[in-house]
């Protein structure tokens, strides 16, 4: 079969004409995009453009007003498809949402217990593995409140990855972290994504870091998708708003250096 005519793999996630509003304010007006399998898609945009709302609509924490969503070609309007998406995906919350009355080990164990597949021995092994990979094994019996901000973020990622999901949603994974830790978090996402092969959807404000690790960029503005394409195209885009944003960042860096 000619490769050019071969049916391509359906995107892991497809969103069509999504709308969502609160009271009088329409946050998402007409959002359509696809998330190709194995990619890192970063959703960028100014504050208040509905990036986190979009993510929460996709996973079902918020109900969209209209539009269609598909997981591997199946409509998420069907409850069995939504359950399948939940089982195959994980979500890293902006403020981590760690279970504060559970230890680090218990936080990571809970998704495995909830899934119920495998034996307690296998769960323990998986928990030890993921804690070791994220350098948290020494903190296994500590509580989230006893950890530093960076460790809490790593714990949130460990909890998300312990079930070996095929799709991981990151909502502002670097919120509240210093620049060094921000770089470390993006490097960690990129490294883990390469090792484990999951698809990642990342909502972030950190344009420079996102451009380095992402295969696609989605730029939201006023509830609409203003840019959807490869990261390389975003860097050379002649869209006025994107140019202005890039110029602002460049000016800020120059000012900081001087």
């Amino acid at each position: 079969m000619n490769p050019s005519t071969a049916p391509s793999e359906p995107p892991v996630l497809e969103i069509r004409r999504l709308r969502k509003g609160f009271a009088e304010r329409e946050v998402l007006r007409d959002i359509s995009f696809q998330v190709p399998t194995g990619s890192i898609v970063s959703i960028l945009g100014r504050s208040g453009t509905g990036k986190s709302v979009l993510l929460k609509c996709v996973v079902g924490l918020l109900e969209a007003d209209s539009g269609e969503m598909f997981y591997r070609g199946a409509p998420l309007a069907k409850s069995e498809c939504r359950i399948a998406l939940r089982r195959a995906s994980s979500y890293v919350f902006q403020h981590n949402a760690l279970f504060d009355s559970a230890t680090v080990r218990e936080n990571v164990l809970l998704p495995l217990q909830a899934r119920g597949t495998g034996s307690p021995k296998e769960w323990d092994k998986n928990v030890r593995d993921v804690l070791a990979r994220l350098e948290l094994e020494d903190a296994a019996e500590r509580y989230p409140a006893e950890l530093s901000g960076g460790m809490q973020k790593r714990l949130a990622v460990a909890r998300a990855l312990v079930t070996q999901p095929e799709l991981v949603f990151f909502d502002e994974p670097t919120a509240g972290l210093d620049p060094l830790r921000r770089n470390a978090v993006f490097a960690m996402i990129s490294k883990l994504q390469r090792e484990r092969g999951f698809t990642a959807v990342v909502v972030t404000h950190d344009v420079q870091e996102a451009l380095v690790v992402s295969s696609r960029i989605l730029w939201l503005d006023a509830g609409l998708v203003r840019f959807d394409g490869p990261a390389a195209e975003f860097e050379t885009s002649d869209d006025a708003q994107i140019c202005e944003f890039r110029d602002n960042i460049a000016a800020l860096r120059t000012a900081l250096r001087s």
Partner: peptide
């Protein structure tokens, strides 16, 4: 935390 529990099915 309750949202996180919900997303764990």
């Amino acid at each position: 935390q309750i949202d996180a529990i919900e997303l764990l099915d």
